[in-house]
Simulated assay, not measured.
Amino acid sequence: MALEALLSTRAQRWFMVTILLQGFVVLAMVAAVFAFVEDNVDLSLSQYKTVPCYLALFILAEIFEVLMAFDALRLRNVIQLVGILIFHLALVVFASIQVHETRAAVVRPNTTNPRGRPLDTSSGSLWHAVEPFLIVSPVIIFVSWLALIFWIRELYYEFGWAIFHVVGANPAMKTMYQFYQIIICLLKFDFFCFIGVSIQLLIVVLQTNSAEFGLTIAAIPVVLFLLIGCGTAVQREIKWLMSISLALMLAAETYFIYKLVRFYEPSSQEQYQTTRATLTVFTIVAFLLLFATFAVGLRCFADFDKGLQSAKLHDITTRRKQYSSAVVVDKIGDHDDEEQGQQYNAGHQLQPRISIE
């Protein structure tokens, strides 16, 4: 079966259009909220920092989702498509939480705002101006999620032959390759959740001169090494690197537990007040994703040296290139055969031949 070109089918094109369109609309809504708040309050004050953080996270989320969607289509990865569907639903939850968090930030009853709109819930207040934009965002994301379900269903049937092209018809190889796809997908989502937690901590909460700020900065390269190292180890079946990666995952789990304790510890809970809900959700999701990555990583480690490495290094994109090259060579060969036949016949018409099947 031929491997079709990227974005050559209706389902692929409309899948990308749906993600891009909702991304533009949602970012426009978030940017409008940011503009209203920036014009009316001092964003350098700690209680209002949740708004620029909200904008930064959604920019990161939309860029990440577009890249993940394109990558899933490129790799013909159904598992990653399902991951995108779950991620998109998580964006609905995140956008809904932001309605509450933004309200907590901008509604300050009995407080005079020298820069503009009142900070209560009256018709002319800042909250009244931004509330419609905050509500539109989760609605748009949810509607686009329903559309994505339809397109991913079509892509599921379209990509049915992808794994067969890579590993053949062996059921054991197919299962091992699916676990490999799962851990690569989990590592990508681990990256987003960790960066999301770090952005919130560095922008909104922590002071640059605090020890916790230094700890958060130091954790970034360690976790990035963990994710990149694990991806490289599982693809190339490097046992010592995979062992280090699995050990670092346990250390990272301890880091997330430490952060959760800090969010609600009496001595530090005040500094996390404006973003505690979002930080808690992100940290718990990051913890669960990393735990799932550790579990699947153990399974993938057990599959090392069982003949799957070639399939990992030569994925569906390599197969597509090989197929395209073969088609070109085949066409050139046919053209050469035709020219040789014409020379051999010296311009005389061939007589009909009888073929006996």
Rank of each mutant, 00 (worst) to 15 (best):
W127T: 00
T102G: 14
C53P: 02
I59L: 06
R117G: 04
V78K: 13
V37D: 01
P118R: 00
Y54A: 08
H88E: 02
L67G: 04
Q47R: 10
L85V: 01
V93D: 00
I86V: 08
S44H: 09
G124R: 10
D120S: 11
V41H: 09
Q98N: 13
A35D: 06
A90W: 01
V82K: 10
W127A: 01
T102M: 14
V93A: 11
S46C: 05
S123N: 14
T111S: 13
V106W: 14
S125I: 04
E62Q: 07
I84L: 11
I84R: 04
A69L: 08
A72Y: 05
Q47G: 04
F58I: 02
S46A: 13
V106N: 08
E38I: 04
R117K: 13
H128G: 06
L45P: 00
I84T: 07
P118H: 07
R76N: 12
L73G: 05
A90T: 01
I63R: 04
L55N: 09
L60K: 09
V93T: 09
I59T: 09
P118C: 07
R103E: 11
D71T: 00
Q47N: 07
P118W: 12
W127D: 00
F58K: 04
R74A: 05
N40V: 10
E62S: 03
R103D: 08
V78Q: 11
S96T: 06
A105P: 07
T112G: 13
V37P: 02
F64I: 03
F70H: 08
A69T: 02
R115Q: 10
Y48H: 02
A104M: 11
V41E: 05
V51R: 01
H88W: 05
M68A: 13
A105D: 14
A105E: 14
V106P: 14
V92F: 15
G124E: 15
L75A: 12
P109N: 08
D71S: 12
I97K: 13
N113D: 08
F36D: 10
F70L: 10
H88R: 06
H128M: 06
S123G: 15
V107T: 10
A56W: 04
V51A: 09
T102R: 14
L45T: 00
H100V: 00
T111I: 05
T50G: 13
L81H: 07
T112M: 14
T102D: 15
V41C: 07
V66Y: 01
F70D: 02
L91N: 01
L85M: 05
T121H: 15
I59W: 00
I86Q: 01
E38Y: 15
A69C: 07
F64Q: 03
A95E: 05
L60A: 12
L43T: 01
A61Q: 02
M68V: 06
F64E: 02
V41P: 04
V92R: 06
E65F: 01
L85P: 01
V99F: 15
L57W: 06
G116K: 12
L126I: 04
G116R: 12
E38G: 12
Q80E: 08
L119D: 10
A56Q: 07
V106T: 11
Y54H: 12
F36A: 10
Q98H: 13
V37T: 06
L85D: 03
R108E: 15
P109D: 11
P109V: 06
L55V: 09
I79H: 08
I63S: 04
Q47E: 14
N113I: 00
D71R: 09
D71F: 05
Q47A: 09
V99I: 14
S96M: 06
S125C: 09
D71V: 00
